[in-house]
């Protein structure tokens, strides 16, 4: 019987002492946390993509709770609905933001851009970009090692082995901007998704002089400025031998695309003129009277 008593007592004592120690340690290391943090985290998507610019959803929630207003705060994944919920929890106003999508501004496919050397280092864009200009004569274009693909939390961007360029799946793209940050060549841009996902953009970031750019890539923007002259809305600017379409001003008239001599201006998701695997789109947009898009009207963005 003694044995039972001793065992019970000693175990009980150990338990009690441990409990006391645990209690004091917990008191000592207690960290105060705003209870609203947890509520905000609950409504966030939990992808921890970092698209908001904070370290994960927890970081964003803490920043939201601390902030005096939600201006400039956006969860790109959850978008407006989630921000509205957060605003509800915190009792604040929320600013509306148009949905964005990642756009790859390089059309230097294997056919358009001739390889002049072979890269034989770690398969990583950042490393290759730090080393030299790249495998082709174009020192601005996509390197195709897939840093963007690895950065994407949603599987929305993949390097197409045929073209060597990344392609964005706009259904999956949340516009978090992780790929934009990952691209050392700053080729990827977040642009307004546009009405019915229709977008116009200059698919090139080459700032070399026209002749040099043209020699390196047949689809390069040569900075001729025809598009800028053609544009009725002054949405196009040409700087450093490179045209840029301001998506806030662009009215999607597609006139610039028609005059571009190298086909560097791309339009996406417009109804194609030729019957080539069309997506069941709404009736044709009023303005669209010219040559078909350069790429198939899939998610080539």
């Amino acid at each position: 019987m003694d044995l039972v008593w001793i065992a019970t007592l000693s175990l009980g004592c150990i338990g009690a002492i441990s409990a006391v120690i645990l209690y004091f340690v917990a008191q000592k290391f207690k960290v105060y946390e705003d209870p609203r943090n947890e509520e905000v985290v609950k409504v966030l998507p939990g992808a921890n993509c970092g698209g908001c610019g904070y370290p994960g959803c927890g970081g964003f929630a803490a920043a939201c709770v601390k902030a005096t207003s939600l201006e400039g705060m956006l969860c790109p994944v959850g978008g407006a609905p989630v921000m509205a919920k957060i605003a509800g929890i915190l009792g604040m106003e929320v600013a509306e933001a148009a949905p964005k999508v990642a756009v790859v501004r390089c059309n230097g496919t294997c056919a358009n851009r001739k390889k002049v050397n072979t890269y034989n280092g770690a398969s990583n864009c950042a490393i290759e970009a730090a080393l030299y200009s790249g495998e082709t004569g174009c020192s601005f274009g996509c390197l195709g090692n897939g840093d963007c693909e690895r950065a994407c939390q949603f599987g929305a961007i993949h390097v197409n082995p045929e073209t060597g360029l990344p392609e964005v799946d706009e259904e999956l793209c949340t516009g978090c901007g992780a790929c934009v940050k990952a691209c050392p060549k700053m080729i990827i841009e977040l642009r307004n998704k546009g009405p019915k996902s229709r977008r116009m953009f200059v698919c090139c970031v080459n700032k070399d002089k026209g002749a040099v750019a043209r020699k390196a890539c047949t689809a390069a923007c040569i900075g001729c400025g025809k598009c800028a002259k053609e544009c009725p809305f002054e949405a196009i600017t040409v700087e450093n031998n490179l045209a840029y379409i301001d998506f806030q001003k662009c009215k999607l008239c597609r006139k610039c695309e028609a005059v571009c001599p190298t086909g560097a201006i791309h339009s996406v998701n417009f109804p194609p003129r030729k019957p080539a695997e069309p997506k069941p789109e709404a009736p044709a947009q009023p303005a669209a009277p010219q040559s078909g898009t350069a790429a198939a009207p899939t998610a080539q963005a």
């Binding site: 390889k115 002049v116 050397n117 072979t118 890269y119 280092g121 770690a122 080393l131 030299y132 495998e135």
Partner: peptide, 10 residues
């Protein structure tokens, strides 16, 4: 651009 050289980091 005579030859397609291999380029790699040191």
């Amino acid at each position: 651009m005579s030859q397609n050289f291999i380029v790699s980091p040191s």
